[in-house]
Structure formats: structure tokens, C-alpha cells
Amino acid sequence: MLGIIDRMKAQLEKTEVYKSIFRHSYQDTQRNRALQIVDNVFLHLHPVRITRHATNIGFTWGMGGITFLLFIVLTITGVILMFYYRPAAEYAYDDMKYLMNDVAFGPLMRNMHRWAAHAMVITVMLHMFRVFLTGSYKPPRQFNWVIGVILLTLTLFLSFTGYLLPWDQLAIWAVTVGTNMARATPLLGHEGPFGPELGMRIDNDVRFVLLGGTQVGPPTLLRFYVLHCIFLPLVGAILMIVHFWRIRKDGGISGPDVSSKKF
């Protein structure tokens, strides 16, 4: 029996289809292992080799990787939620209730989305804290720190825009309070420094553009939905690619000074 499977496997590996998909065998040689990484579109962002300390959880906390994992969880559960959710004021709240009460696995998907979102904000901050503690923002990694700060604000903005979508009282008033801060934007807010002098009114300032009106209403729901589901994840994904790529280009995961005798 096993002989048949082995022979079928050998036969399969000779076919053109198989060889067009898998370029390398499982041969455990340094060269083959490196080729497996660099020839894979998903894995090639990884370095072929890493230093020993880079696998030390005590040093990295794994927070960047956990954040990325949560982002993937949020993307998948978010897409699933989009099958039932309509971003219109008449439907949004009912669709959320429908998801929670009548859709099979709906509560699981929504709760996973919610908890992963909360967790991602926390892990992003812990990641930033670890990078600060280990001095990993120092040259040559300054640029990647800046990308990371933008990713932090994108994470917070994703969290904020998602908060409106249930369209309940908590969501509407939380976003009312949150967006009222935009009134005080310097130059671009109608209650901010030099705003009124530049002709800013309640119906033409930066808050108005964000809300699509003078108050949180149906246009705001649609705007936040598009920002939450399309614009912010897209920008975030692009910056994440840059962020991961720059880790390698800046010399891999930072670590103790190996030239020093202590290590």
C-alpha cells in the first residue's frame, strides 16, 4: 500500500503541473532551504537567515508578528461581516442585530473582529514600547520608526471608523465626541487657531469633509465604512509591506552589539 503511494508521489512530482508550482524539493540542504524562501512570494519578505537573538521571544516579545496576525484575522472576519452589513442608516443597526442573532457563526465572526481590533491596538502599542526599550528606532532604523508611527495612527483610525458602524447610540455619540476634536484643528477647523480667519465655517472645514455634513449622519456612516473597509486597510497593507521590507534592509531585527566581548 505504502509502495503505491510512494510511486504515485514520485509520478506526480515528475508532472509538468507539479514542477511548475513547486520549484524545490524538501532536500534539507542550506541551499535548498534558502531557495524555498526566496522563491515564495509570501515568504520572500522574510530573511533567508536570521541571527540567533532574533528568535528570542524575551527580546522581541513577538508583538510585531502578533499585530500582523491580528490584522489578517481582522481582514478575514471583516470581509465575512461585509456579506451581511449594509452601510446605510436604515439598515446598519438591523444588519448588526441580524448578524448577532440570526446568522450562523455571525456572533463568532463579529466578536472575533471586535476583540482582535481591541487586541491590535494593544499589541501595536506594546510593539512600539519594545522597539523604544531596545533602542531599535536608532540609525539606521529611523525611517522604519516613522513608518511605524504612521501605522499606529492608521490602526487607531481603523479602530475609530469601525466603532461607528454598529450605528447604535454608543457609536453615534462616541464619534460625535471624537470628531468634535476636529473643530479645533489649526487652520482647517472652524473653532481652531486661525480657522475662522481663513474663512472656516461649520459647513466647509475639515470636520465637515470627514463627516460629509455638519453632524454625524448617514453620509458619515458611508464615509467611515469606505475608510474602514477599503481606504485605511489598503494604505495600511502597503505601509506594512514597506515596514517588513525595511526591517531586512536595515539589517534585520536589532540586537545586542555582537562586536562587544560581552556576547
Binding site: 459647513d203 466647509n204 465637515f208 469633509v209 460629509g212 455634513g213 455638519t214 453632524q215 449622519g217 448617514p218 453620509p219
Partner: peptide
């Protein structure tokens, strides 16, 4: 694109 984001008509 910025001008497009400023609505001309409000349903308020």
C-alpha cells in the same frame, strides 16, 4: 478629489 469630498447638498 478634495473638492469631491465636500458635499454640495445636505440632507439635514
Amino acid at each position: 478629489a478634495i473638492r469631491l469630498m465636500v458635499p454640495r447638498v445636505l440632507y439635514e
